[in-house]
C-alpha cells in the first residue's frame, strides 16, 4: 500500500506529561476511507493521541502524518483538512444552530454563497432543519452532538476525528449518529472515532485497542474476535455470585466475568465438563453451559485483563 492510502500514519509517537507517559511510542496506520474505532479504557491515551493528530498537542517524540501532512511541519494545511469533535461541547450555546454553522464556515473561509448551500446540505444530511433557528443551548444532547458534527464536517474535510461523540446520548440518537457516520464514510471520508460502546465498535471497519499508552491490538472486529485466545463459555448458574467466585478460584480458568444474568468463562482448553464438575462440587447449580463465540466486549475485557495480569506479574516478579 502506498503512503497516500494511509490517512493517519504515526511512528514512535510519544507524549509525556510531567513524568507520566500518556502515549508511548505509538506506531499506527489507518487506511483512507475507513471508520477507525479507537478503543481503550479511560486514561489509556486515546484522547491524547487524537489531540496530537489534530495539532492541539505537541508530540514529545516521534512523528505523525495526517492526510499527507506532517503534523509538526505543515500545521496550516493540516487544519484545513480535518474536522474535530472534542469530548467537550464545542458550540456557542447563545447562537442558533444556523449561526454556529455560519460561524465555523466563515472560520474555514467558505464563501457566503457556497456556505449557505452547504449548510442546507448539512441540515438535510444530519436532519437538523427542524431546529435550525433554535438556540443551541436549548437542544437535547443528541441534537447538540449532531450540530457539533455538522460544524466539524462543514468544510468537507477528508479526515474526521471524533472523540467519544456519542457519550451520554440516548440509543436512538446514537443509532442516527452512526448512520450519518456510515454515509460519510461511503462518501469517502476517513473517520477516526473513540468509543466505549461495543456495538459502536462493531460498526467500525477497523479497530485499535489502546492500553497504558500502547496499541495492544489492531484489526477488523471479526479478526479480533477470531484471535480470541481460548474457548468461551456461557454459564447460567445459581447462585450467580458464588459461581463467579468459584470459577475465578479454579486454576484452569483463564478468565471469568459477569455478563448480564450469566457468566462468561474462558478456558484455555475445550473442556466444559471439567468446568461443570468443579463448579457443582463447589456447591453451585449449573443450569446451562455452552460454548459461544466471543463478542467484542469479551475480546476487549480479555485483552485488558491479560495486560493487567501481565503488569501485576512483572511487578510481583520484581520484588
Amino acid at each position: 500500500m502506498s503512503a497516500a492510502e494511509w490517512v493517519v500514519e504515526t511512528e514512535g509517537l510519544t507524549r509525556r506529561f510531567d513524568g507520566f507517559v500518556a502515549v508511548d511510542h505509538l506506531t499506527l496506520r489507518v487506511p483512507r476511507g475507513s471508520i477507525f474505532g479507537f478503543l481503550g479504557p479511560n486514561g489509556s491515551g486515546k484522547s491524547t493521541t487524537i489531540r496530537m493528530l489534530c495539532g492541539l498537542l505537541k508530540p514529545s517524540e516521534g512523528r505523525a502524518v495526517v492526510n499527507g501532512f506532517d503534523i509538526e511541519r505543515h500545521p496550516e494545511p493540516l487544519r484545513q483538512s480535518l474536522g474535530y469533535m472534542s469530548q467537550r461541547f464545542s458550540l456557542y450555546p447563545d447562537l442558533t444552530v444556523r449561526e454556529n454553522l455560519e460561524f465555523y464556515g466563515g472560520v474555514y473561509d467558505l464563501e457566503p454563497g457556497p456556505l449557505a448551500e452547504r449548510i442546507e446540505q448539512v441540515f438535510d444530511q444530519l436532519r437538523l432543519r427542524e431546529h435550525g433557528n433554535d438556540l443551541t443551548a436549548a437542544l437535547p444532547l443528541g441534537w447538540k452532538q449532531r450540530v457539533a458534527l455538522g460544524a466539524a464536517m462543514l468544510h468537507q474535510p477528508p479526515v474526521l476525528f471524533l472523540d467519544e461523540p456519542t457519550s451520554g446520548v440516548d440509543p436512538a440518537s446514537r443509532r442516527m449518529f452512526w448512520e450519518i457516520l456510515d454515509s460519510l464514510a461511503v462518501g469517502g471520508a476517513s473517520i477516526f472515532v473513540t468509543t466505549h460502546v461495543m456495538d459502536e465498535a462493531e460498526r467500525c471497519d477497523l479497530l485499535g485497542v489502546m492500553y497504558g499508552g500502547h496499541l495492544i491490538a489492531q484489526g477488523t472486529p471479526a479478526a479480533l474476535k477470531e484471535a480470541f485466545p481460548g474457548f468461551l463459555y456461557h454459564v447460567d448458574a445459581a447462585p450467580l455470585l458464588e459461581a463467579l467466585e468459584a470459577a475465578r478460584r479454579l486454576p484452569f480458568v483463564a478468565d471469568a466475568a459477569m455478563f448480564g444474568d450469566a457468566l462468561h468463562v474462558t478456558l484455555p482448553a475445550d473442556d466444559p465438563e471439567r468446568l461443570r464438575r468443579e463448579l457443582e462440587s463447589a456447591g453451585v447449580t449449573v443450569r446451562d453451559l455452552r460454548r459461544i463465540s466471543p463478542t467484542l466486549e469479551d475480546v476487549f475485557v480479555q485483552l485488558i485483563a491479560l495486560r493487567e495480569r501481565a503488569a501485576e506479574g512483572a511487578e510481583g516478579g520484581g520484588r
Binding site: 495539532g55 492541539l56 487544519r79 461541547f89 464545542s90 458550540l91 472560520v107 474555514y108 460544524a151
Partner: peptide
C-alpha cells in the same frame, strides 16, 4: 472554559 477555544485551535484561524 466553554471549550470553543480548543475547537478554534483546530481550525485555520
Amino acid at each position: 472554559e466553554l471549550g470553543t477555544l480548543e475547537q478554534l485551535s483546530v481550525t485555520p484561524i
